[in-house]
Design a protein around this nucleic acid. Sequence first.
DNA 1: GTATATTTCTGAAACGTTACAGACAAAAAC
DNA 2: GTTTTTGTCTGTAACGTTTCAGAAATATAC
Lengths: 362, 362
Amino acid sequence: MPPDNAQRKRQRVTIADVAAELSVAVSTVSNAYNRPDQLSPELRARVLAVAAQLGYPGPDPLARSLRQQQAGAIGVLFAERLRYAFTDPAAVLVLDGIASALEQADLSLLLVPGRADTTTTVQRALVDGFIVYSMLEADPLVGAALARRIPTVLLDQPPRAGVPSITVDDADGAHQIADHLLRFGHRRFAIITDRLSEPLTSTDLSLHEQAAHTFFVTQLRCQGYRTALEAAGLRWQDVPIHECADNSQADGAAAMQALLHMSPRPTAVLCITDRLALGALTAAQQAGLAVPSDVSIVGFDDIPSAAHASPPLTTIRQAHRDKGLLAGQALVALLRGEAVAERITLPVELVVRGSTEPAAGC
Amino acid sequence: MPPDNAQRKRQRVTIADVAAELSVAVSTVSNAYNRPDQLSPELRARVLAVAAQLGYPGPDPLARSLRQQQAGAIGVLFAERLRYAFTDPAAVLVLDGIASALEQADLSLLLVPGRADTTTTVQRALVDGFIVYSMLEADPLVGAALARRIPTVLLDQPPRAGVPSITVDDADGAHQIADHLLRFGHRRFAIITDRLSEPLTSTDLSLHEQAAHTFFVTQLRCQGYRTALEAAGLRWQDVPIHECADNSQADGAAAMQALLHMSPRPTAVLCITDRLALGALTAAQQAGLAVPSDVSIVGFDDIPSAAHASPPLTTIRQAHRDKGLLAGQALVALLRGEAVAERITLPVELVVRGSTEPAAGC
DNA sequence: GTATATTTCTGAAACGTTACAGACAAAAAC
DNA sequence: GTTTTTGTCTGTAACGTTTCAGAAATATAC
């Protein structure tokens, strides 16, 4: 299709053209669209007819939004790559929840691409507010969003004073699921996690230093594992941690393969997400190991496919969709000038399924 | 959190305030942000310092967009409920593809909620273009989008003159997969489809009448089934069609249960999507039937979980992600004033897996 | 030392609306 | 027959930027 068709950028028809054609005031044309009660039905009909004839596409949204000082959309900042939003099952559920909240408020949802090299998309996003979801605390995009000084809600983010935050009790979940394995008599653990800036092998201080470069939920979950294992008398330094570049099944499988070469082999593998766990599961089985009799594997998140794996995955359930819904509702409330809780922490629940059993010799 | 905190709508700081404070022209402040080469580094530093001190959040995106006549985002119209976009695996892949294309062009993606009762969200969407994806042709939202007279690409939609359209050869796919079953000797078919306005049991004319109220791909696929079956000497009127309200596994299962009560029972079930097929599969198995020996089941789309089902699903593969990518790229080209193909049709591929086998007695 | 660039800053005109106060006439109230 | 209300329509001032031609000052060329 040549560009010189109906979609070509031809001379723009504005409200002024319609007004001129009819010899009425521009405000009258405006009223025809926005306040039908402010003019006679006959005139309104004429205005609309002339507008159609002239090819006037209706009031320009940008001009209207500038005048009314509202964009009618909220922005979601999530992950480095926009496409990731559509790939991760847990994220999909969260976005679904956000979408539900917005739908009720007639707001649109702007997905802002998070290229690390520029913050301009955030600075120029036409939105009335932001939901910042699972970004690195040090990510410039987060700073750029907060610098906009528009209503913002943090979701799975380190809380900041003055900004409503919704978080999940990830540390508790990690603690619970590690405890579950400890009660089964497991003593040789390994951890498969997504990207850490450095292995979590040093002191608390170092934990804090690297915090800004580690995903908040990753931090919390690792902390949960740690406190549980240390409470059982295990030394954190002795627990092998395998770090994956991506939260994907493929990376989980690769990590598992690496762990299987260790000796003594771990009898329980703590995966920081279900996707990694599912990968680990298949890798273990392909290596000829039986799950859970040779090795117990647990995940985190209870994504839909966790229940359908064989064996089904023992994991930590959280209400992904409600989490998103809550965040969306909080932002909507903020936009309306209503009060909002500064901090909400959602509970988690241990879901025991077939991928775990007592350690051999118990 | 009380609304009177840092996020309260306080007196707004504009570029003029910064300029006044410094006794420079507003254009100088503007240049400090947008054209650093247009002013001395010292003055620029002073401007930025004063801006920070005054709490100026940077140039207002709405005003900038109005002035520059571009929103920096494109809108996607999809399904009735925004949340559906995040639920359907095929749609997720398509959106992922669209997102990739936009990411490269530094454009954001606006998901417009499609409430049938109002078109205002479409009319007011702050976007430079639209991708209309799998909407009912008669949906007012589609009309509203086209009425905006901004660059638009149709995806899995009935083509319209002057608007670039990207479609998939769904009819061919349906024909192929029906043929596959016919070659296996099947003669007793049933069809499970998503919402139709009326059962597809009448003449071609009626097909056209209801077209505007049926999803385009549903139409194409049903046509494909029909031509294949009729070419094999079967009468379309004799083929039971079960219509589902939603494209969900649950609805597919319910449909299958209904079909199982028929006698003679169909030996082959054509499902118009993989999700319906997966539901049908489990329902058949729960009813004590073996798939494929008692009944062959096929899907359409080759979503990721189709390969992981047991038995894995025979289906029609299409390049969901590439489809979205192509649509995104076409829209980007349109926005740049480049020429774009008016019509692209993507091929499909039959993927034979374990859910089909020759009919008993062959 | 004049003419020509170059750098740095300015002012006003858009961008296309909507909100609001008011003008005018016709209808309603007393 | 005056006042009050109602119904229609108008004009103008925002909304907060960016753009662009040009002014002023400073540097460069000859």
